[in-house]
Amino acid sequence: MPVQQSFRHLQAAFGNFFAKRTKCPSFKRKHGKQSAEYTSSAFKWDGKSLKLAKMEDPLNIRWSRILPRAVKLTTETASKDSAGRYHVSMLCDDSVVLKPKVSAKVGIDLGLTHFAILSTGEK
């Protein structure tokens, strides 16, 4: 839930303050940009709709890009800018597929008479 996450942020801020790494934490203001951070236990995402904690209906979202199917969402941040618009950003863990190792290597030399000359002699 956002309250638990805000307490985690506050604890980290005071920990940094007492360790003399930063200044004393300041309180958030009511006006301007506001945000709430939800951990994975506080929202549900089924691939099409997003439902936040303590909400009955899912959010009506206009997606800016399509998320891959194998992605796992870890954190979601809902923010309101000073114009009154709401934005949702999602932090996700994605699996990276490693490419097969190749034993062949080719060197490229950029020249004046020819654009590129490969180590195999091809121009």
Rank of each mutant, 00 (worst) to 15 (best):
D93P: 01
L59C: 12
S89Y: 03
E76N: 04
T75Y: 03
L112A: 11
A36R: 10
Y38A: 06
F43Q: 02
K101N: 14
L98W: 02
R8Q: 09
T75K: 06
K99F: 07
S95Q: 14
G84N: 09
K54S: 05
D46N: 15
L50S: 04
R62E: 13
K33A: 11
E56R: 00
C92W: 14
D57L: 02
Q11M: 10
D81A: 09
M90R: 09
S49G: 03
D109T: 07
A83I: 06
L50F: 00
K54N: 14
R29G: 06
D94C: 15
Y38T: 01
T74V: 15
F7C: 07
M1L: 08
A36M: 12
F7W: 11
W45L: 07
N16V: 05
A78S: 04
D81S: 13
P2D: 00
T39H: 05
F115N: 05
I66P: 05
K44M: 04
A13K: 05
H31E: 15
D94Q: 15
G47Y: 09
K20G: 05
F7Q: 13
I66W: 01
K80I: 15
T120I: 09
K23Y: 07
S49Q: 10
F27W: 12
R8W: 08
K105H: 08
T39S: 10
H31G: 03
I108Y: 15
E37R: 10
R29K: 10
M55F: 14
S6L: 12
G15A: 05
T113E: 06
S40Q: 04
L52H: 03
L50I: 12
R65C: 13
K51L: 05
L110F: 14
S82A: 12
R69F: 08
H114V: 08
E56L: 02
A116R: 07
F27I: 00
Q11W: 04
P100E: 12
D94Y: 05
A104R: 14
F7S: 13
K54G: 04
T77N: 03
L73K: 05
D93C: 03
P68R: 02
S119H: 08
K23A: 10
N60R: 10
G47V: 08
H87N: 02
L52S: 06
T74M: 01
P2S: 04
R29I: 07
K28G: 15
H114I: 02
T75G: 02
S89N: 10
A42Q: 07
K101C: 07
D57P: 00
T39D: 12
K20R: 14
A83P: 06
T39P: 05
K23L: 03
I108Q: 13
G121W: 13
D81K: 02
V102N: 14
V3G: 01
D57Q: 06
L98G: 07
V97R: 13
S79T: 10
D57S: 12
T74Q: 09
M1A: 14
I108D: 15
A53P: 03
K80F: 01
F115E: 09
R69H: 12
T77V: 13
F43M: 05
P68W: 00
V106I: 06
